[in-house]
Design a protein around this nucleic acid. Sequence first.
DNA 1: ATGCCTACCGGAATCGTTTGCGGTAGATTC
DNA 2: GAATCTACCGCAAACGATTCCGGTAGGCAT
Lengths: 383, 383
Amino acid sequence: MIKCIRCKHVHAITKSGIVRGKQRYFCKDCNIYFTLPDETTVDMKHKKHMTTIVDIAKALNVSKSTVSRALHEHEDINPHTRAAVLKMARQLDYQPNLLAKSLVRSKSNTIGIIVPEFLTYFFPTIIMGAQQVAAEAGYNVIICQSQESYKTEVANANVLLANRVDGVLISMTRETKKFDHFKAFEKHGIPVVFFNRVCDEMDTSKVLVNDYEGALKAVEHLIKNGYRNIAHIGGPPALLITHNRLRGYKDALAKYKLPFKKELVVHCNLSKKDAIACAEQLLNLKQPPDAVFCVNDPVAIQLMLLAKKRKIKIPAELGIVGFSNEPSGEVIEPALTTVQQPVADIGRSAAGILLEAIAKGEAYVPEKKSLKTTLIVRESSIK
Amino acid sequence: MIKCIRCKHVHAITKSGIVRGKQRYFCKDCNIYFTLPDETTVDMKHKKHMTTIVDIAKALNVSKSTVSRALHEHEDINPHTRAAVLKMARQLDYQPNLLAKSLVRSKSNTIGIIVPEFLTYFFPTIIMGAQQVAAEAGYNVIICQSQESYKTEVANANVLLANRVDGVLISMTRETKKFDHFKAFEKHGIPVVFFNRVCDEMDTSKVLVNDYEGALKAVEHLIKNGYRNIAHIGGPPALLITHNRLRGYKDALAKYKLPFKKELVVHCNLSKKDAIACAEQLLNLKQPPDAVFCVNDPVAIQLMLLAKKRKIKIPAELGIVGFSNEPSGEVIEPALTTVQQPVADIGRSAAGILLEAIAKGEAYVPEKKSLKTTLIVRESSIK
DNA sequence: ATGCCTACCGGAATCGTTTGCGGTAGATTC
DNA sequence: GAATCTACCGCAAACGATTCCGGTAGGCAT
């Protein structure tokens, strides 16, 4: 018969429905409902248990507060107990549970990064830089790829929010036009730093390279080397870099009183295929350029490949300058002159600013940082 | 005068030392110690509060259990209350606190990745692949760079342990000879999958590319193209890939009854400097090789650069094959023949296996996966 | 002996969830 | 009409830390 779990009697037991698959009983004496403990499931308590501070506390017969204090060089602790705790912690190889710590401190020591993609060397390098700085400060990094899609970018933001990151580094999608998902961070006091693809509508810190200046230097270099009919293969119009580099190109021409011819400017969506198309378009001109400033190195390389195929002599008949200094530019012949961006520095700067913002909290005032570019002169641009 | 916080009287109060900078009192009547509440610190409770389930619960006048259940399509919930909860959650724009969830579930939905470096395109691409499948399964990724240092690798492992990751993806340092930091994962039931630089001493899943087969194909290709005195620049002896590629090299020679000459095999630590040194060593031989199979593309490129400097004709006088198909190999002249590895697939496979291991728990049996390579024939190896 | 001090230690609340199980109202059954 | 059922809901205990503050033992002065 069924015994009441309290009075241990059997006389006043009645059934009382089935809950969650198990028969429930009611003891009229004790006025209590109960179900029988599950006999089937054997003690599967053999889960790999990680040692906690209570384990240490028990082993030493002290309270967990004491253990916690010992582990954090709190003043209210006897050096002897402290030593004992430290020793025991090592013995049981204790690993603090950062999740619990984050929960109670409401600080996760984690920063989030949202980048549009991860394929080129560009973003990985930035992330590496950021990760280095973060790691030194004891921060972890959660990385999200938005895949150039607004929708996943919003999802990414929510993931980071849900993980209670202490700050976020963002390079936007090229299709992002609404910014509520970014503003959500601000609303909760989570600092945000944009890099590269920045958001003008938000009053946060921003890190980018001085594209304008880089482009100016590049084109100026071509002019100084005797090129006069200089073309430009630009990037997609939606991107800020496109405008800035184009502006640098124009201003360099203006500075040396060279005419701006709009047939010498074409826009490329940065795919390999389109790069070749743009190159062809320029080389097919009745009056083809004697030099081209390209929006980035891959485009420059496609142009160079095409020119070589057509037996156009580089740099004698065609000077080429790229942008971004990718490894390939170094080994191609002739070696590609390019504008180097301090890629890892972008990540480092952004992370540094972010950590500062996290530390200062409310008191922090956003800053804009513009990183310098340097022209790397190789063979492709020296007549 | 000082009033007792309980009896509100002043007659039985005596001082009782100073704790944490504040005067403490003792009421002999109530037998109670107390300090005066701090008047100075004004209510700074205006911290940005994120809405929690109790906020929702209060707003709806239900218990937090009900809210939790409503949010998780639990069966014990009335569709109406569920709808109300969902609506209110949206109104207050509730973001679940994953830290708290992880704590109680003892499952963080996070996987860790330890890679030796982050500079080449190789590891970023793997990570991207892994990150993709992880994200699809709702997992976050924490990335650590060991910087090819055993010490930081151990530190990385501890970080991941402390963050209670559910699983780990590892590509070892080349100097790692002790594996306790890896075994710690096993001890706590955290599955580990090695990729690329695997650890033979551990009985876990491993993902790598079929280096042996790739090397075999590469050298066979050289032989078929008429090269007879084929050298090999290998990697550091500590790495498995070094052995496998060397084995492929040897077996290819044997297959075609070509003699193995040990002076034609040199080992390179993969740095640029050492690559040049190795290349020089081979080219300086009394009887220099007529072809070289290199452990990877960067090494092959350094060799090619040196050979070109010495006016050695490639591929006529020297055939070269690399390994890993890096972008630079495509633009160098002559274009580099290489063995392509499915890089992103490594990450995807490893992450897939890891997720499976996490899901199956104890029941999981480790597997070894070997990914196929493909030989990409370009110009540097066709006489 | 009586205050008051210092130097520690422990109890308990808290962070935001999940979850086992007890409780209850109203319907249904015998 | 009593026993039993269904369909919910709420209480409270975890999870593993941190931290506020009360408690206590022993020392020193008066």
